[in-house]
Simulated scan of single mutants.
Amino acid sequence: MEQKETTQTFEEAMEQLEEIVTRLENGDVPLETAIELFQEGMRLSQLCGSKLEHVERKIEMLIETEDGVQRKPFAPGQEDRGE
């Protein structure tokens, strides 16, 4: 498996991780290969988590106020659901 961690997108990493999970779930790989796949899966999982955290820090909600537009950090689960 060729690794391009610096250029690998979140979507590419998730696709590769899904392939690894499928192979491991099938159970038709030798133990050594399963261990290698598991290690690669953990690396991809950490990469995806890191990319999500990075994006989450960048997300900002724009809230219109009487004084103009105010920037507020995005806080998952605390969105204003009222209208």
Rank of each mutant, 00 (worst) to 15 (best):
S50K: 11
I63M: 14
F38D: 15
R57A: 13
A13I: 01
R57Y: 11
L17M: 08
G49I: 04
V55D: 09
E5G: 05
N26Q: 14
G27L: 03
D67S: 15
G68E: 04
V55K: 08
I59N: 02
F10D: 01
T9A: 04
V55P: 02
E64T: 13
V69H: 08
E12S: 04
E12Y: 02
T33M: 08
D67H: 10
L17R: 03
E79W: 02
I63N: 11
L47M: 07
E36V: 14
D80L: 12
Q70W: 07
G27V: 01
A34P: 00
F38M: 14
F10W: 03
T22E: 09
L24R: 00
G68I: 00
K51F: 06
T9W: 06
Q3K: 09
G82F: 09
V29E: 00
T65A: 12
M61T: 12
T6P: 04
F38P: 05
A13G: 00
L17W: 01
F74W: 07
G68M: 05
E40S: 05
M1Y: 13
E25W: 00
Q70T: 12
R71S: 12
E40M: 05
I63H: 10
L37I: 05
E66V: 14
V21I: 15
V55I: 12
E12G: 01
E64H: 11
K58W: 06
T6K: 11
N26D: 15
M1F: 14
T65H: 09
A34T: 03
T6C: 09
L47A: 04
D67V: 08
Q39R: 15
R81E: 10
T6E: 15
I63L: 14
D28E: 09
Q16G: 05
F10I: 05
R57D: 10
E60W: 09
R57L: 12
L52G: 02
K51T: 02
D28Q: 07
F74Q: 04
Q70C: 08
E25M: 04
F74M: 08
I63D: 13
E83V: 13
R57H: 13
T65D: 09
A75P: 06
M1L: 14
E79P: 01
F74E: 01
G77I: 00
I59W: 03
I35Y: 04
I20T: 04
I59V: 06
E2R: 09
E53N: 11
E32G: 07
E12A: 06
E60I: 12
A13D: 01
E36T: 15
E36M: 14
R71I: 11
A34Y: 02
M14V: 07
G82V: 09
Q8R: 13
E11G: 01
E79G: 01
F38E: 15
E60L: 12
